[in-house]
Simulated scan of single mutants.
Amino acid sequence: MRAVWLREFGGPEVLVPGPAPDPVPGAGQVLIEVAHANLTFVETMFRATGFGPFARELPLIPGNGVGGTIAEVGPGVDPALVGRRVVSSTGGTGGYAERVAVAHDAPLPVPDGLPLDQAVALLADGRTALMLVRAAGLRAGERVLVEAAAGGVGSLLTQLVTAAGARVVAAAGGPRKVALLRGRGLDVVIDYRQPDWPDRVHAATGGLDVVFDGVGGPIARAAFDLLDPGGRMLSFGLAGGTWADLPAEVAAARKVTLLRPSAPPHELRALTEQALAEGAAGRLRPLIGQRFPLERAADAHAAMQSRATVGKTLLDLP
């Protein structure tokens, strides 16, 4: 089968397409014929440095999320699963390939009416966005800043915050992303590459109750300074390269709660199921900003790393 290999850590060019043995589903496993592979920012960090939650033994086929059709089952698995459209985590590796074998209980069925590519776009980002909104305990009328609002998680957060009755301030980097967000119906959109962006947020809101921090670094610190007492700051990404430097004692003095939510596997699975259901019902619309064929995984990583992408980036397999 066709696959993409990582044989050394480094720049995007270390992702090299090549042949790989066809996986065979073992006892308790299913084989997924992959139509779309999900790409996440943490995968670009892992490729560059080996940092992240994935196993470091090289060589390996990267990729932690796929969508496709169950093509075969191993011993002890219900053959009725063959032909089912599913999305699935892979356990950390194997996703950048035409086929992948996973435990039979890893895949989630894709609801009728939800296109498979949208389901893949919701696989990781949807559950993350739902987890963040749940942890924030949003209340109607609150003023909420979503950083990296043109990204995969951020674009979903803007929808969930609006649905909760809160007021969204969307922040993104550069005029292209600002225009995209305005085109998606958001009224208050700020370009955080402009030096006066905190002043603009304050002028529009008078202060903030919640910040969803997907950028980190100085942007996050400036957003923190806009929070009123009793505010909450939830960090979910570091597109800027580093987490925000926010000492706990400073937050306590400001009466701001700092949160970096997580959840055990069974809760993440339930959140993914919820995201898929919301997508099927049309209440959660993932933004798929760019697609690459499998062989151009290196180009996909380069685009994500340069922050030139919007929404979700997918690898498409014919």
Rank of each mutant, 00 (worst) to 15 (best):
G154F: 00
A275L: 04
G154H: 08
L132W: 00
A172L: 08
G231R: 14
S235I: 15
L156V: 13
A253P: 00
V110I: 02
A3R: 05
E147V: 00
T242D: 14
P195R: 11
A166H: 01
L226K: 15
G141H: 10
A135W: 00
A140R: 09
R167S: 08
D299C: 06
R269M: 05
P286S: 14
L226N: 14
V66C: 08
A35R: 12
V73C: 09
G83R: 06
G95N: 05
P111F: 03
A298Q: 07
P175D: 05
S155G: 13
R182H: 10
V146K: 11
D213E: 12
A37E: 03
V133H: 01
G214P: 08
I70S: 01
G152H: 04
L114C: 03
L114E: 03
D112N: 02
V66A: 13
G28T: 05
E278N: 04
R134T: 03
G83E: 06
L315M: 15
T44L: 03
V16A: 07
V42M: 13
G165A: 01
G173I: 11
L31D: 05
E147P: 00
D187M: 05
V82R: 14
R200V: 12
L39G: 06
L181D: 03
R307D: 12
A80F: 01
E267R: 14
V215K: 00
F54Q: 11
F46I: 04
Q194K: 13
A252G: 04
G113A: 07
E249V: 15
L122D: 07
M45A: 05
V120M: 06
L58K: 14
V73L: 06
P265K: 07
L160P: 02
T44S: 08
L181M: 10
T162Y: 03
Q290T: 12
G289E: 09
A163I: 09
A280D: 08
A252C: 04
